[in-house]
């Protein structure tokens, strides 16, 4: 599944970071690499952007960017 489909409060691990150019570079630099664990903390008012916990810190990104990240939900 893609990160933007994940539910609030769910945890998933990254399979592949898609996107292109600078956005992809930025996502990789921020630690969104295969195997990294993502916890979806919350959605902003109007449902977008989202806030995730990754590698022990909080990161916010938009649905558009989350749409580039392939994840696998953990039970």
């Amino acid at each position: 599944m893609l990160l933007d489909e994940l539910k609030v409060g769910a945890t998933a691990s990254v399979i592949k970071t898609g996107g292109e150019g600078r956005v992809r570079r930025h996502l990789l630099d921020m630690g969104i690499t295969p195997g990294a664990e993502i916890y979806l903390r919350k959605r902003a008012p109007f449902g977008d952007p989202i806030e995730i916990t990754i590698r022990g810190y909080e990161l916010s990104l938009r649905k558009d960017e989350a749409h580039c990240i392939e994840v696998e939900e953990k039970a």
Binding site: H26, M30, E51, L59, E65
Partner: peptide, 9 residues
């Protein structure tokens, strides 16, 4: 432009 921002504690 994209919005990829760290939220400080």
């Amino acid at each position: 432009p994209p919005f990829i921002m760290e939220l400080p504690s």
